[in-house]
């Protein structure tokens, strides 16, 4: 039975992630009083891209060619070691919050290198901005997890979820503060508003997209897919660590059903939140972004102060 869940754990993230982006797009369209594309549109986009030819810059090296695989593999790896539905999977022994953060940093590293590799001016500043944002987001990300770790007395993600689940919401305020801090980082790391516009066509304001301008065909598909994976991973982390209710402790059909339903509800709520934010505020000027990220960091510091 466990094997089944293990496989499910590994496959769920990549299989479901395009749907998440589709849902967010759909919700955004609704906010704009549009019908919008189908929630399955991202699957179609990927499917189409996988069937197209590729044009690769003649200046690109193996970094550019291998980066999609690495970036995608990294999201897979991170997806495999976070609590998704089941708290008792094979993935628990791999590591802790630092492992998750730093493994996902590998993806950022190669994404940024790929942006630089072709020598395109857009890719270059895309990388520069991406690294700026992610460097500044790291403090907030780490500290929001640290708040949880301090509450739970363990830095292992499964133990954190487990501990918060079993001890109840005794530390409500710190967790909420850390949750807000984490949400800001989620937006930053995944290139959402107000940090980046995922649907922009203007090269000069791009961050994430600018690094992908050179990609085409199946490598582009892999990159887009990896980005969707990453978003899903972050949403899962947010949903399952800060609000771990519904996670399955021991297997039973009822618990599984409840776990899946509650998980989906949480994700849906997060999608709604992201879509709401993206429809109601404008993208910030680049040099205002650090302020938001420092807000995230500060919130977490306050949260630590509240615990102590």
């Amino acid at each position: 039975m466990h094997t089944f869940f293990d496989i499910l754990q590994i496959l769920l993230i990549p299989l479901a992630s395009p749907l998440i982006t589709g849902v967010i797009k759909k919700l955004k369209a609704k906010f704009q009083n549009r019908r919008g594309a189908s929630v399955f549109q991202p699957y179609r986009d990927l499917w189409k891209l996988f069937h197209k030819d590729e044009v690769i810059s003649q200046d690109a090296s193996w970094i550019f060619r291998l980066a999609p695989c690495i970036v995608f593999a990294v999201t897979l790896a991170v997806g495999a070691i976070i609590p998704l539905i089941d708290l008792a999977t094979f993935a628990a022994p791999a590591g802790d919050l630092l492992t998750v953060i730093y493994i996902s940093a590998i993806g950022t590293f190669f994404l940024a290198l790929a942006g630089l590799d072709t020598g395109s001016a857009f890719g270059g500043f895309g990388s520069s901005r991406e690294m700026t944002v992610s460097a500044l987001a790291e403090g907030g990300l780490l500290f929001s997890f640290l708040v949880l770790a301090l509450v739970a007395g363990s830095a292992n993600l499964f133990s954190i979820a487990d501990s918060i689940l079993t001890t109840g919401n005794f530390y409500l305020q710190p967790i909420v503060l850390a949750g807000i801090g984490f949400f800001i980082v989620l937006l930053a790391e995944n290139g959402r508003f107000p940090f980046d516009n995922p649907a922009t066509h203007l090269e000069l304001t791009m961050i994430h997209e600018a690094m992908l301008l050179e990609y085409s065909g199946r490598r582009l598909a892999l990159m887009e897919w990896a980005a969707a994976n990453k978003l899903f991973v972050f949403m899962t982390l947010g949903a399952n660590l800060f609000f771990p209710w519904g996670l399955m402790h021991t297997f039973s059909p009822g618990a599984l059903a409840a776990a899946v339903v509650i998980f989906l509800l949480k994700i849906a709520a997060l999608c709604l939140a992201i879509a709401f934010i993206e429809s109601t505020i404008a993208k910030f000027r680049f040099f205002r972004l650090p302020d938001i990220l420092f807000v995230s960091f500060t919130l977490n510091i306050v949260a630590i102060g509240l615990i102590k």
């Binding site: 369209a29 009083n33 549009r34 019908r35 891209l49 197209k52």
Partner: peptide, 21 residues
């Protein structure tokens, strides 16, 4: 725009010719 909204038909505009059909 919301009136025509071609996105709902599976058509969208992209930022790079590398991405285009």
């Amino acid at each position: 725009n919301p009136f025509y909204d071609v996105e709902r038909f599976g058509v969208h505009f992209v930022a790079s010719p590398r991405h285009a059909d």
